[in-house]
Design a protein around this nucleic acid. Structure first.
Lengths: 225, 225, 225, 225
DNA sequence: TATGAATGAGAGTTCATTCAT
DNA sequence: TATGAATGAACTCTCATTCAT
């Protein structure tokens, strides 16, 4: 688990405090701008302790990341099991709602992910992001595959294109509707709680019309220039 | 324009070189990891000059950003004018193609935007991003408004929701299909040149089905839990 | 003996292990670069134990040194006894051979001596080295005294000068011919096993010509400037 | 020369002060125990300046070393030229006297060499020492070669063995007779000024008897055990 | 008595910023 | 006005030593 025995021998409250403080620092400042000094000061522990626990800054980050991945994995498995057998669009909608709930409960975890996505290079960036993306893509792909098997989607749609489309729309929806829970203003469209419900309904309607098999293709393709 | 008189008294070539070098540095390293020392060395000017011209690192960044915004505004106005009178979905597709072309011509400008979007906190982040988003939203909103006036969109769709939807999908499409031009691997889906055309066709089909008035609403809304 | 009662109450095997590990560490890294943490880890004992046993790093070093001095003293006495009655130059040669044998058997002891000789300042350096040199000088002096009593050396040679001369030559010979057993490349001349014998013969010839009474002094002293 | 332009633009007095302080620090503490912080404090300059001048601690060390090598090279060439044509033993004696003079004038240079010889590993150790040894060996070897050409040495003596012998004896002589000028007590035999002259005469006599062609070999080789 | 977690001074290094020239 | 040497706070990381358990 990339932390030393010493760390795991700390009492739970202290372990929690360390991870909590580090998560705050990393999610607020990213990797390079995060300061181990500052974390130590906030925690009231010696600077050297981090290095006893995690070897170096990178080890600390990796541990925090693993912690976040664990937090994230459980709900993902749970929502998939709970919606087994329901129609594709209901499953998508439930996924969005589950995503909203997770982010409301763990805003810093989500912000850390956001920070990692586009931040400057740091040691484990590619490796760690690949893990997240793989989990997310695998989940969506399984939903799409089952939907295609059940002939819920319009014929002629690429699996890749659909996954990409859903990933983009859902990701952006979550971002827009959870910014209020994060202290960072990313300059994007932000919804208040009240409009989220309505917005979700609209989005789901678009997705349905966009992807569902409606028994015909009334539009002709535009020729490219 | 956030630069001193001194700077504008430099000959054009030198002004250009300063902006160019700074754009490279910021787009490659973000704000904090960018090094004024390195820029000065590359330019062959004194470190102190930056501070004479722009006050501090933040001022330099702001100036570079303004420059990028100018680069970006012209094509946006141009594409809008060129597609005047065409149907909504054609305009959307042309916008995507124009976006692709812009990013191929100015990869560093786009990468700077990507870096800004989610990177570590830096002084002007929110202000600057808001300007970008405002320009983009304004553009899309005008397209959607005209489309609704021409009854090209399905009745019952919120303007806000449509704008949000388009913004999300188009943004993600551009990112996925231009990563090849940038040296950053963001861990996201990346298309090679050959698949871009096909992917664009698929995406446009989804958008059409999702938004166009097809003379009926075959789906009922899902009740929320 | 510079260690606490606590240490001597440990069983012999453990005491031995502590000295052995510390000898390895000090002979490999010198004093300051040696790490008490590393030693404790290798031994599988608590870091605090060293400080209980020896007070501090310096105390540990002193103890290891005493141990080495004991190892060294026995062979020195032994070779002196064994060569009693032989001619001076034979005794010198036997001493060199004994030195070679000792270093082959105890390379770490010799390397520790080498490290101490000229390494960075550390607390007991002068005191400890003086002890080694005293033992060595005393041994050589007794050999020379007896040789002069037996009129084996050329008249007019100072005892001090002869002792100094022998000390220098023998020390360097041992160093050059045992570097192969140590992992340190000191940048000096290094002999392989095969040339050692030949080199020893040459050196002994020089020493004999240089020191033995040959019944005349064919050279006149050069006047100094 | 391994230092930046910045350094060479300092006025001579300051350059001198920097090298001087660094030489003191390195010759006193070796490489790893030397502290750039301490040097900066002694000099009354900022810590960062060293890194501007020399890149890192290793660069500083290398520069100091080069400086010392320059100091050392001139007298070596000079003494060789001055003694051209004199007999071998005179040249050796003059070399010793020149060595004494050099060390009296530059005790820290000599101590640095001594420190380097046996200290813990540091980055450039082998490279730098090789340079010193090469210069020294080359000098002695040329003397010995000429002596053999002039039939000044006893037949049957290996060139290698003679060079080794001279190197050992001269090195030790210089060490013993210059320790008084260095603040480090290396635990070796130390001569005061008054005895140096006498000691040198004795040593030269031994060397002469040991190496010179005396027209016969009155000693038989001892058989080895 | 033995432990090993905690400490914190100090290490080398970086870099935005200042200011005398 | 332009310069670039100097600054010094802040960075990550190490390790001998202490002390509560």
């Amino acid at each position: 688990m990339s932390a030393s025995k010493t760390f795991f021998q700390l009492d739970q409250a202290k372990q929690q405090a360390v991870v909590d403080t580090a998560l705050s620092e990393f999610s607020e400042h990213g990797f390079h701008q995060a300061s181990t000094n500052r974390m130590a000061q906030v925690l009231g522990i010696a600077k050297g302790s981090f290095f006893k626990y995690f070897g170096n800054k990178e080890g600390l980050f990796r541990y925090v990341f693993e912690h976040c991945k664990d937090l994230f994995s459980a709900p993902l498995r749970s929502i998939r099991a709970q919606t087994q057998g329901k129609d594709f669009f209901t499953r998508v909608e439930q996924s969005l709602l589950a995503g909203l709930a997770f982010i409301q409960r763990h805003p810093r975890v989500y912000r850390l992910y956001i920070k990692m996505l586009h931040q400057e290079r740091f040691p484990l960036r590619e490796t760690l992001l690949a893990e997240v993306r793989a989990a997310s893509a695998k989940y969506l792909r399984s939903l799409v595959r089952e939907a295609q098997a059940n002939q819920e989607l319009r014929p002629g749609l690429d699996q890749d294109a659909v996954v990409f489309f859903l990933d983009a729309v859902m990701d952006r929806f979550l971002l827009a509707h959870t910014l209020a829970f994060m202290d960072a203003d990313l300059g994007l469209f932000q919804a208040d709680q009240e409009t989220t419900r309505h917005h979700l309904a609209q989005l789901m309607a678009i997705i349905r019309h966009g992807l569902a098999d409606d028994g015909g293709t009334p539009f002709e393709e535009t020729p490219h220039a």
